[in-house]
Structures are given as structure tokens and as C-alpha cells.
């Protein structure tokens, strides 16, 4: 009897993990392994594996013009979105981080977009960017065919994404800037340091962990971009906004091509993973912790 009680006591800690492990298995690890398996197999319409085909799907994928477009577009989006987002949010944070009158008001204005869900925002921006009746062309006095011109369509997605990311990233940078010790900045000022050098030599190094966090999560978001594309441009015009996850969705659900869809998933996994590893390498070299 005491032995059984002791056994029950010993097993108790593990019981707490049962729900989490069940979910992790069902909706993370199992689908991951099956995606890997699908990507090297021929899969039928109901998702059953018919035969092993080795790297055939990947060969097909990388030879596919369509996929190359998705890959380039995904990188193009990320290369535009991440730097613009970081610089813009940093500028906003630098403008209001000192507690002064009216700054609190502007702070609220900057974070309000957070309350708007992506689909609502995408519909609103579609109207704002409308080439003929849209407010943006009118107010800027320009005549850009935002959704008909392959050169400009991605810009609309970038603008929407930066607008949606602003609240969160701005708040992170604001908190980071405010945690920089005042004495450091003040003593630098006494020694005659200008604003530029205070920013570059004191503030920037001290907020670098936050910057790295933002860059990493936003690169990941960039690699996974699909929602705004689905709602605003449907990948067009001429596939100029078609991204990897968008193509995976089309291959998987519109064309029923699970093998191709899974191969694209694996490419996305590899890309996100590499980007995160890269960020950690940069962290070891360039990021300064207090």
C-alpha cells in the first residue's frame, strides 16, 4: 500500500503535463513530421501518402517559376518591412519617450492601431489605396495604380504591415528607451556630448536587446506573411504580392496539391529557423546587455 501511494506521488508531477503534451503532439509535432513526410512523397487528395518520391517535390518546386516568384516576394517584403518598421518605430519612440505634456496623447495615437484586427485594417487600406476614389492618391496628389501595378502593390502590403506592427514595436522601444539610466545620459550631456552621439553611444547599445527581439520576430512574421495578401491583393497583380505561405495555401487548398504545399512548408521552416539562428549569432557579437 505505501508503495502504491509513493508511486502515485512520483507520477503526479507528470500528470500536469498531459494536456500540453497532447496538444503539442496533435497540433505541432505530429503535423510537423507528417509535413516532412509529405514533402518527400506523392500524396493524394485526401492527404494519404501514396509513394516515396525522394527529393522530386523539391526539385519540381525550385524549378517552378511560380515558387521562385513567391520566394523572391517573401524576401522582398521582409527586406522592406523590417527596416522600415524598426526605423519608423524607433523615431516615434525617440519623439515621445520623455514624459512631457502632449507626449502621452501622441503615445496613445501611436498605439491605437493595435486595437484594429488585420482584416478590418486590410479592408480600410484597400479603400484608402483605391487608385480612383482612394484618399491616399488624392491627398498626396499622385496617380499610382496601387493594385494594378506590380511595382507598387507590395508597397500597400508593407504600409499596412508597418501600420499594424507600430503599436507593439513602438511600445517595446519606448519601454527600452525609458529604462536607460538618466544619470548616464545626463553625465554625457555635462561632458558636452551632442544628441547624436548620446543616441549612438549610449541609448542605441542599451536598447539593442529589444531591437534584436523586434528584428527577429518581424523577420519571422515576414517569412510567414499571408493574411494581408489574402485580404488585400490575393497575390496579384501578376503574382507580384504572392508569398510562400500564400502559395502554400493555394497549392494545398485550392489545387489539392498537398505534396507541393508541404514542400513549401518545409522551405518556410528552414528559412525561419535559419533567420532566428542568424539573429542569435548577431546577438553574441553585437548586442550589449546591461
Amino acid at each position: 500500500m505505501p508503495g502504491r501511494i509513493r508511486l502515485r506521488q512520483a507520477l503526479k508531477p507528470y500528470a500536469y503535463f498531459i494536456p500540453a503534451l497532447l496538444v503539442a503532439y496533435l497540433f505541432s509535432y505530429r503535423p510537423f513530421l507528417k509535413t516532412l513526410a509529405n514533402s518527400v512523397s506523392l500524396v493524394n487528395y485526401s492527404g494519404r501518402i501514396l509513394e516515396f518520391v525522394g527529393l522530386e517535390n523539391y526539385r519540381g518546386l525550385f524549378a517552378d517559376k511560380n515558387f521562385q516568384t513567391s520566394l523572391i516576394n517573401t524576401f522582398r517584403f521582409t527586406a522592406l518591412f523590417v527596416p522600415i518598421d524598426v526605423v519608423f518605430c524607433l523615431v516615434c519612440a525617440l519623439l515621445v519617450y520623455r514624459k512631457r505634456r502632449f507626449n502621452a496623447l501622441n503615445e496613445t495615437l501611436f498605439i491605437l492601431p493595435m486595437a484594429v484586427a488585420m482584416t478590418s485594417a486590410a479592408i480600410a487600406f484597400r479603400a484608402l489605396f483605391n487608385p480612383t476614389i482612394g484618399v491616399i492618391n488624392h491627398l498626396l496628389g499622385i496617380q499610382i495604380q496601387w493594385f494594378n501595378d506590380p511595382a507598387w502593390a507590395m508597397t500597400t502590403i508593407v504600409v499596412l504591415s508597418v501600420w499594424m506592427a507600430l503599436g507593439f514595436d513602438f511600445l517595446l522601444l519606448l519601454a527600452a528607451l525609458r529604462s536607460v539610466p538618466r544619470q548616464l545620459v545626463e553625465s554625457a550631456q555635462l561632458e558636452g556630448a551632442g544628441r547624436g552621439s548620446i543616441f549612438l553611444r549610449i541609448q542605441l547599445p542599451l536598447i539593442s536587446p529589444t531591437l534584436l527581439f523586434i528584428v527577429t520576430t518581424r523577420i519571422r512574421d515576414g517569412m510567414l506573411l499571408s493574411g494581408p495578401v489574402l485580404v488585400m491583393t490575393e497575390g496579384g497583380p501578376f503574382r507580384s504580392t504572392q508569398t510562400l505561405i500564400y502559395q502554400m495555401y493555394i497549392e494545398g487548398f485550392k489545387s489539392g496539391n498537398y505534396s507541393m504545399g508541404s514542400a513549401i512548408s518545409v522551405v518556410v521552416f528552414v528559412l525561419t529557423f535559419t533567420m532566428i539562428l542568424l539573429a542569435f549569432r548577431i546577438e553574441r557579437k553585437g548586442v550589449f546587455y546591461q
Binding site: F27, Y29, N38, I245, Y258, F269, T272, I276
Partner: peptide, 24 residues
């Protein structure tokens, strides 16, 4: 081990798993 099994799911973005999750 349990900790990393749970935390490890972070490396598998759900957007890239939607096909298999849908089939499940």
C-alpha cells in the same frame, strides 16, 4: 525534457502547419 518539449513547439510556426492540421 518536458520543458523543452513544450517550449520547442515555438520553433514550429502554426501558419506553416495548416495543411496537416486541417487534415487532422
Amino acid at each position: 525534457l518536458l520543458f523543452f518539449l513544450v517550449l520547442g513547439t515555438m520553433m514550429l510556426p502554426s501558419d506553416a502547419l495548416i495543411i496537416e492540421n486541417y487534415l487532422t
